[in-house]
């Protein structure tokens, strides 16, 4: 695995046309190392889909730059999973092969589609939402992309299919070192699978880094109410004399508190709750 970035942004901004529409993204800087499985998280309207579409080359930045692999080395699965409704599943995969001459992995594409409980001559328009996701993922993975961009990939899958497809994604990453960026609201889906985090809010990057390092940089503490300086308080709540806080620590945490390392879910929820009221 190399540490060369697979995706970079510098001063990246996107403003959609039309009156009264502000910046969807602004001032975004990050560098995602290759081979990472990156969770793209944030509330609705945070700019996640815009960022993915910019990375896929489907939108042009209004300002700044985004550095992504060439079109043939990346695959993008949009939220609405656009597929040709009147093609059969087999025809869809055949189209994938024809559009990606010399690099199409037909065995992998077949493996993703299998287990979906439908035959390959089924027409796409007769598939359920979850089955369409399978076909869209097969099309994306069959291309053997270096960078895979997934916008809410698992939203319409049942838990079993979600687990299976996440397994397929992780196996692909293990085998080919594919870099994956996936947006999701389902935190349990990301915990365990993702080793990198990009948290957006109001069009800006609020957290960016390796999950291990981010978790190690934060501390969850409970104990008596007291001044938490020099640490940075992400979120704190006082109930009577009892304080519960998530901090980004500066040096060791010394005091009468019980401390523990937060889970990814603790960290995300604390950041999402505190940015909620912040100006976008």
């Amino acid at each position: 695995m190399t540490e060369d970035p697979a995706l970079t942004a510098e001063g990246l901004g996107k403003k959609y046309g039309g009156r009264g529409r502000g910046w969807a993204l602004r001032g975004c800087d990050f560098a995602l190392p290759a081979g990472r499985i990156c969770a793209l998280v944030g509330p609705n309207g945070a700019g996640k889909s815009t960022l993915l579409a910019l990375a896929a080359g489907l939108l042009r930045p209004t300002e700044g730059t985004i550095g992504a692999p060439a079109r043939e080395h990346l695959a993008y699965v949009a939220q609405d999973k656009p597929l040709h409704p009147r093609l059969s599943v087999a025809d869809t995969l055949r189209m994938g092969r024809e559009l990606n001459p010399g690099r199409w992995d037909s065995a992998l594409a077949k493996r993703v589609v299998e287990g979906g409980g439908f035959s390959s001559d089924t027409l796409v328009r007769h598939l359920s939402g979850g089955q369409r996701t399978r076909v869209a993922l097969a099309l994306a993975l069959g291309k053997r992309p270096g960078l895979l961009l997934l916008d809410e990939p698992m939203a319409d899958l049942d838990p079993l299919a979600r687990h299976q497809l996440m397994g397929v994604l992780m196996a692909d990453a293990a085998e080919h070192g594919t870099t994956v960026v996936m947006s999701s609201h389902i935190l349990t889906e990301l915990e365990g699978a993702c080793d990198h985090l990009l948290l957006l809010h109001g069009g800006r990057v609020r957290l960016d880094g390796a999950v291990d390092e981010l978790l190690a940089a934060h501390t969850l503490l409970t104990g008596p109410v007291a001044d938490l300086a020099p640490h940075t308080v992400v979120e704190s709540r006082a109930t009577g004399r009892q304080l519960t806080a998530l901090i980004r620590h500066e040096g060791p945490v010394e005091g009468p508190w019980e401390t523990s390392e937060p889970s990814l879910e603790d960290l995300l929820l604390a950041h999402l709750r505190t940015t909620e009221g912040a100006p976008a």
């Binding site: 499985i37 687990h163 299976q164 996440m166 397994g167 397929v168 994604l169 992780m170 196996a171 990453a173 293990a174 085998e175 365990g192 699978a193 993702c194 080793d195």
Partner: peptide
């Protein structure tokens, strides 16, 4: 089991294995 086999069955990150 290879990392690939483990992550396919468990859906965890390959680096963890």
């Amino acid at each position: 089991p290879t990392a690939r086999e483990v992550v396919e069955a468990t859906a965890i990150n390959p680096n963890t294995v």
